[in-house]
């Protein structure tokens, strides 16, 4: 019975992806993409990876969907003003067929063969993780791998997030802050919901962060939920990005700052880079994760709020030099 569930789920995933690619209307493609994110979360559940399902639901269906809808809204807002033809139909020319077909078929055959002739693995990492989980300071293997065994990857990955937001800030012309955003319409129902949903979101975010050390959860999923809460506030009309601007730089880099200082300060005791002192691994990891959650929340939110306004005058040379 569960194999039938998996087969149908896989086919649905494929169907949704086909829907995204073949849809002429851009908005339909984006909504199909949101459905794809949700189905992918279910696939991760079936692959026995609840952490990834949590991350995919929070980041994939939640944030990426909102970013895509915002982008399509930006496109359709300007297109409708410029010319009255239906904005979302894709009239752009297509590229010649030979490269896509070759790459598609070639990749498919190559990967099928790679799966078919896969040799038996000689090194088993899961056993190693199980043997060393005791000293890692956390019970949940994935958090142990992320923040202890391969913590250097996570450090670089936070740097990747930080670079993305630095570039977003660099591309935002200073003139844009001063231009007054139109006051969002006051919507009683939405404000009511935000007032009740926000505490629940923050609570769940902290719960997911706390749960990270002994069951699926952790800094990234918690951060994504915090970001979703901030995006919710921004959409409901509270100009969160204006308040956030003041403590933005510190908040963004806080997680990375804490992670780096901990990573370096342990070296003073003669231990190699990124080695947690024996007794304190658990507490240190949780402290780093808490700071990371805050930073990831702010970073993902500013990746949403640093976008250009929809009504940006299209076509004229943006006045980027603010002297």
């Amino acid at each position: 019975m569960n194999l039938a569930f998996d087969i149908v789920l896989g086919l649905a995933l494929l169907l949704t992806a086909l829907g995204v690619f073949s849809s002429k209307d851009l908005f339909r493609a984006v909504v199909m993409f949101i459905a794809f994110g949700l189905l992918l979360a279910l696939v991760w559940v079936r692959l026995d990876a609840p952490d990834l399902a949590l991350a995919e639901a929070a980041i994939g269906a939640g944030l990426t969907g909102v970013l895509m809808i915002d982008a399509v809204a930006h496109l359709s807002a300007n297109t409708l003003q410029n010319d009255q033809r239906d904005d979302q139909y894709d009239h752009s020319p297509k590229r010649p067929l030979w490269l896509p077909v070759i790459s598609c078929v070639g990749l498919f055959v190559l990967l099928l063969g790679a799966i078919r002739f896969r040799p038996e693995a000689s090194v088993s990492l899961p056993d190693m993780v199980r043997d060393n989980i005791a000293e890692s300071g956390v019970e949940h293997p994935i958090t142990a791998v992320l923040l202890n065994f391969r913590s250097y990857d996570t450090l670089l990955e936070i740097a990747v997030l930080l670079v993305a937001v630095v570039v977003a800030m660099a591309l935002k012309p200073a003139a844009e802050d001063r231009v007054h955003q139109p006051p969002p319409a006051h919507d009683p129902i939405l404000h009511g919901l935000t007032a009740r949903l926000l505490p629940a979101m923050l609570l769940v975010g902290m719960y997911v962060l706390w749960a990270g050390s002994y069951m699926p959860g952790g800094a990234f999923q918690g951060g994504a939920i915090l970001a979703a809460a901030l995006v919710f506030l921004q959409l409901a009309g509270f100009a969160v990005d204006r308040y956030a601007a003041s403590l933005l730089r510190l908040g963004l880099a806080l997680g990375f700052l804490v992670f780096l200082t901990v990573a370096v300060s342990v070296m003073i005791g003669g231990r190699p880079f990124l080695t947690y002192p024996e007794g304190f691994a658990g507490q240190l990891i949780f402290f780093i994760e808490a700071m990371l959650t805050l930073s990831i929340g702010l970073i993902l939110f500013s990746l949403f709020s640093q976008n250009p306004p929809h009504s940006g005058a299209v076509g004229h040379q943006g006045a980027n030099h603010d002297q």
């Binding site: 969907g65 909102v66 809808i69 807002a77 939405l190 997911v208 979703a228």
Partner: peptide, 30 residues
């Protein structure tokens, strides 16, 4: 897998955010 209840909880919270984004961002200018 009790962990899936957390996933359901997160999904319940985030399901509406796409809708709010659609309503708030798709309509103001037009």
């Amino acid at each position: 897998m009790p962990a899936l209840n957390d996933v359901a909880l997160v999904l319940a919270l985030l399901a509406t955010i796409a809708m709010v984004a659609f309503v708030k961002r798709m309509s103001p200018q037009q």
